[in-house]
Simulated assay, not measured.
Amino acid sequence: MSLRRAWSPAAWGRRLPSDDADELTWLLFHQEDVLSLEQARRHLSPKAIRHRVATGTWRQIHRAVFVAHNGPVSAGQLRWAAVLAAGPQAILGGLTAAQAGGLRGFPGRPIHILLPASCRRGSLPAGVLAHRTVTLRDQDVLAVGQPKRTMPARSIVDAAQWASDDQQARTIIAAACQQGIVAGDDLSRIVERLPRVRRRQLMLATAADAAGGAHSLAELDFLGLIRRAGLPEPARQKIRYDSTGRRRYLDAYFEEWRVHVEIDGGQHIDPRAWWADMRRQNDLWIEGDRVLRFPAWVIRAHPDEVLRQILEALRAAGWKG
């Protein structure tokens, strides 16, 4: 299939080349204006390549990679540069692949690429990390979209095992579940079939909690706190309806004792979001629930105080534990 027929005009919001455009123009459109030296040589003489660089039409951003302009290099172009420099078997992996698929809230560097364990790779640009794998099935690789990258669940599992520490691994999993990139069950299936995955038990436990409704790191910290203290386990993300009939989700709900715990994150900086949560809280109080609210940082910094208030609320509601 020719490049002209393979890619839609919607790609990256860029203008589709004209029907009479040459193959090099289509290649640059397909690869966000990035190409390797090997690709350039298929279409141009060495003299023509040097001329484009010398006149500023192209810019050499790595030993064997060019970008077809002289302005700032975008995040997408850096990803292309990474896989083109590494070689034809390289794909985006881990946090980089997840970000290409929509994950937000993490730095874009370093760029992570994934390679089969046995293949050779080229020299890499600064800020690119290569990882090897012996287990990469066809269903682990996204069938559409370029450059190639791992599927969301595999991306998050790899990102968690490549994370600098356990806390960062849990943060990545929580963010991916909260943002709807993956579901906890998807992660568990990937972990179970990767024989050498790091942080196996941490990922399985975090994924199970995410599948049960704990969708943020603060909620996961809260759940761990409750379990260590031997308190009853609350329902997570329980659906309730407010006085206007709108569906609401409770962060944690001790249903038998009607004790509701709300964990406030960064969204409460927005006054409108804060008022919406206050209104929901008022509706619950009117109905007779006990509502406790904790900022996310308090759960980590003052766990004993959090436990004391939850324990007092449960006992006031009739818990005999």
Rank of each mutant, 00 (worst) to 15 (best):
L3R: 10
A6G: 06
S8Y: 15
A11F: 06
P17M: 09
E23Y: 14
T25W: 01
T25Y: 05
W26P: 05
L27Y: 11
S36T: 06
E38C: 07
A40S: 09
A40Q: 02
P46G: 01
I49E: 06
R50I: 15
N70F: 10
G71H: 14
S74K: 08
A75L: 10
A75Q: 13
G76P: 09
L78S: 07
R79K: 13
A82V: 13
L84Y: 09
L84I: 10
A85C: 10
G87F: 00
Q89Y: 13
A90L: 14
G93R: 02
G93T: 02
L95I: 04
A98C: 03
G102Y: 05
L103P: 00
G105I: 08
G105H: 13
P107S: 10
P110Y: 03
H112L: 03
H112G: 09
A117P: 12
S118I: 05
R120K: 14
L124T: 03
G127M: 01
L129Q: 07
H131T: 02
H131D: 03
T133N: 00
V134P: 13
L136F: 15
R137I: 08
V141F: 03
V141S: 04
R149H: 14
T150V: 11
T150W: 07
P152T: 04
P152Y: 02
A153S: 14
A153W: 12
S155G: 13
I156M: 02
D158K: 00
A159M: 01
A160H: 00
A160V: 01
Q161R: 02
A163S: 12
S164E: 14
D165Q: 11
A169V: 04
R170N: 06
I173W: 11
A174T: 01
A176L: 01
C177G: 07
D186G: 09
L187Y: 07
V191P: 00
R193Y: 12
P195Q: 08
R198G: 12
A205G: 06
T206V: 15
A208L: 10
G212Q: 01
G212W: 01
D221C: 09
G224W: 06
R227M: 14
R228Q: 15
E233R: 04
P234W: 02
K238I: 07
I239K: 14
S243D: 12
R246Q: 13
D251T: 05
F254D: 04
F254I: 05
E256Y: 06
W257N: 00
R258N: 10
V259W: 02
V259K: 00
V261I: 06
D264Y: 01
D270F: 03
P271E: 04
P271T: 08
P271Y: 13
R272V: 05
M278N: 11
M278K: 14
R280W: 08
D283R: 05
G288F: 01
R293S: 03
A296M: 09
I299C: 02
I299R: 01
P303N: 11
D304L: 04
L307C: 13
L307Y: 14
E312C: 14
A313E: 05
G318W: 03
G318S: 09
W319R: 07
